[in-house]
Structures are given as structure tokens and as C-alpha cells.
């Protein structure tokens, strides 16, 4: 069928772009390593082939112990945020919804801040204390917001948004209070700022090993909701007429999006714009059908963040910029360009 062919072409192209982006990101840095060598050493590593090592042994360490971890983390964050953005925008029928509307950002930030107050050296089996605290902070916040927003057996979208806003404000205030009163934290303002602006800070493969299955699983489960998300685009009432158990699915989709967001913030802090812009860009280019929109946004978000993170660490090397600055600097003009070019949906 035509539609299927088009979807296949789009997804394969995006996947190739992601692989290209990953190679490029691994190649660039203080020491540049030829992409061909990277392919060879990766194939060797997975025992697929046995190429002669024409590269420095140090290169292999740089790729596998430093760069690839970071690049894979960037790809996971980008994919998770873009997918969460699609889920929230589709469910809430609000193009301005972003992954942080359920309060995950403030919860994660407070969690990370509290973690920074703790004595150093406390690590959860190689996961890092800050990511774990951020993840927990995000999850606790989501639970709080859901419970506040519930009215009887229903969770109206408006009370969801209000609860998210109120809880976020309160948690942000607590975080500011902690920073202002704790002398230990004031020494760590730079780390806090990096977290808030969004920086990928992953040191161990074990972190990836925990988060990757959650993100990939989350995206796959999201795909099962794609047809119903199209129905949700017509409104909750219409979705109910079409036989959807609205309250149950709404909660599942909100939980799924929030979980993906929590995974992302645990790896990168609060990277803005990816979750907002990627779904829009993909929707404007490919249409609003969630069956294509979800996988395409995940791949595009991953590629975008891999590239943005590479820029963040190479532009003014050796100083690293928070990747969130790059995503906003690229994302905002790109968004404006898309809106101006395609007038399918919006007047701007």
C-alpha cells in the first residue's frame, strides 16, 4: 500500500540519519577519529568481524568509554522527549504541550538539588546519585499531580494542567529556598545551572543499561496507542463514542509520557525545545497520523539531540555548553521557519 511504502521510506531514511549522526558525533572531539575506524572497531567489538586494528588503542577507549556512552545517552534523551511530546500534544489536543507539563521538570530538579546536598561518594551501583534522585523526583511529582488532578474517577485535562503548574511552582520554590539557604549548594551553582539548562552527563554504561530498555520499551508501547491517539485528536468525547475507555487510556498515556520524560531528565537534566519542536516539525512534514508521527519523531528527536550535543561539546571546546542552549538556539529558528513555510495548520 502507498501509505505503508511512504512510512517505510521515511523511517528508514530517519534511521540512517540517526546512524550517520551517531558516527559523526563519535568522530568529532578533542581527538578526531575517522568514522570508518569507528565502524570497524564497533564491528570487532560485537564480534561480527575481525578487522586489523589500524587505530590507536586509545581511540578505542575514547569511543567506547567516553564518546559512545554520551552519544547513546543523547539519542535516548532526544527520542524519549520527542515521543513524550507527541503523546502529550496528541492527548491534550494542545500543540503547545511539552513533556514537562506534568511537573516532571520541577520534580527532577528538586531531586537533583537534594542529591547535591548529600555527602559525595554515595552511588547507587554505578548509576550516579543525581540521575537516580532526578528520576525519583520526577516520578513522585507525577504521582502527586495525578492524584491532585483526579476528580472522582476522572482526570480532567484542565485540572491536570493546573495541578502540574501548581506543583511545579511549589517545587521550584522549595528548590530556590534550598539553594539560597544551603552554603554547600551555593558552591555547586554551576552544576545546578547545568542541570537546569540541560546537559548530558552520563558516566557509566550501567546508567544506559537501566534507561535504554525503559525508553525503547516506552516508545514501543506508545506505538500501540497510536491509532487511539488519532481518535483522541477528535476530543475525549468523540474518542468515547469510538469505543475507547477514555479515562483508563488517558491515564496510561500520561503515565507513559511522564515515564519517558523522567528517563530523559535523569540522563540530561532539563533539555528544552526537543519535546516541543520535534513533534511539530515531523507533523508539519509528514502529517498528524500518530502511527507515523511517533516513530518518526523518536528517530528525529534522537538525531537532533545527538547533533546538538556534539555542537555543545565541540563549539567552544574545551568548554562544554549545556546542550539545552543549543537545542533552543537551533530549535527556535527552525520552528519559525517551519511555521512560515507550511501553513497547513497555523497562522503565525
Amino acid at each position: 500500500m502507498k501509505r505503508r511504502n511512504r512510512a517505510a521510506v521515511v523511517l528508514v531514511s530517519l534511521a540512517l540519519a540517526l546512524i550517520g549522526g551517531v558516527l559523526l558525533a563519535c568522530a568529532l572531539g578533542a581527538v578526531s577519529i575517522p568514522p570508518l575506524d569507528i565502524i570497524k572497531m564497533t564491528l570487532n567489538k560485537i564480534h561480527f568481524s575481525d578487522f586489523q586494528a589500524t587505530w590507536q588503542p586509545a581511540s578505542e577507549t575514547i569511543i567506547f568509554q567516553i564518546r559512545l556512552i554520551r552519544v547513546v545517552a543523547a539519542a535516548l534523551v532526544g527520542a524519549a522527549l520527542a515521543t513524550a511530546g507527541v503523546l502529550f500534544q496528541g492527548l491534550l489536543r494542545n500543540p503547545m504541550a511539552d513533556p514537562y507539563i506534568t511537573g516532571t521538570s520541577a520534580g527532577a530538579a528538586l531531586g537533583a538539588t537534594i542529591a547535591m546536598m548529600l555527602p559525595l561518594g554515595l552511588a547507587f551501583s554505578g548509576l550516579g546519585v543525581i540521575p537516580v534522585a532526578a528520576f525519583c523526583g520526577a516520578l513522585v511529582t507525577i504521582l502527586l499531580v495525578y492524584n491532585l488532578a483526579r476528580v472522582g474517577s476522572k482526570t480532567p485535562i484542565v485540572s491536570m494542567l493546573l495541578a502540574g503548574f501548581v506543583v511545579s511552582s511549589m517545587l521550584s520554590a522549595i528548590m530556590s529556598l534550598l539553594i539560597m539557604t544551603d552554603s554547600e549548594l551555593q558552591l555547586k551553582l554551576h552544576s545546578i545551572f547545568s542541570f537546569l539548562a540541560g546537559s548530558i552527563s552520563v558516566q557509566y554504561w550501567s546508567q544506559i543499561a537501566v534507561i535504554a530498555p525503559l525508553v525503547i520499551g516506552g516508545i514501543i508501547i506508545s506505538l500501540f496507542f497510536s491509532f487511539h491517539l488519532n481518535a483522541f485528536s477528535l476530543g475525549e468525547e468523540q474518542a468515547a463514542y469510538l469505543g475507547i475507555n477514555v479515562e483508563r487510556e488517558k491515564l496510561l498515556i500520561l503515565a507513559l509520557g511522564s515515564l519517558l520524560t523522567a528517563c530523559a531528565v535523569s540522563l540530561s537534566g532539563l533539555v528544552g525545545f526537543v519535546g516541543l519542536v520535534m513533534p511539530h516539525a515531523v507533523r508539519l512534514a509528514l502529517g498528524p497520523d500518530h502511527r507515523l508521527l511517533i516513530p518518526a519523531s523518536a528517530l528525529a528527536g534522537a538525531t537532533f539531540l545527538v547533533i546538538a550535543d556534539t555542537l555543545a561539546r565541540t563549539l567552544i571546546a574545551p568548554t562544554e555548553l549545556p546542550v539545552g542552549i543549543i537545542t533552543a538556539l537551533i530549535g527556535a529558528p527552525f520552528f519559525i521557519y517551519l511555521l512560515r513555510r507550511t501553513r497547513r495548520e497555523y497562522a503565525f
Binding site: F224, N230, G235, A239, R283, G287
Partner: peptide, 30 residues
């Protein structure tokens, strides 16, 4: 229903296909 609006640019064919929602399996699609 009396009226509904769609915030996204769905085509007519896509909207009509949504009438099949109660028959479409989440896993195998339409």
C-alpha cells in the same frame, strides 16, 4: 455529534478511517 474540531491537519480519509477504531487492533493495525 453536533460538532467537533481537530487541532491537527487530518485529511478526510484519515478522519473517516477513525470510525474503524472499535475494530482496529492495537497491535496489528487496520
Amino acid at each position: 455529534p453536533q460538532y467537533f474540531n481537530i487541532p491537527f491537519a487530518f485529511t478526510v480519509a484519515e478522519v473517516v478511517l477513525l470510525g474503524r477504531t472499535p475494530f482496529v487492533s492495537a497491535i496489528s493495525g487496520e
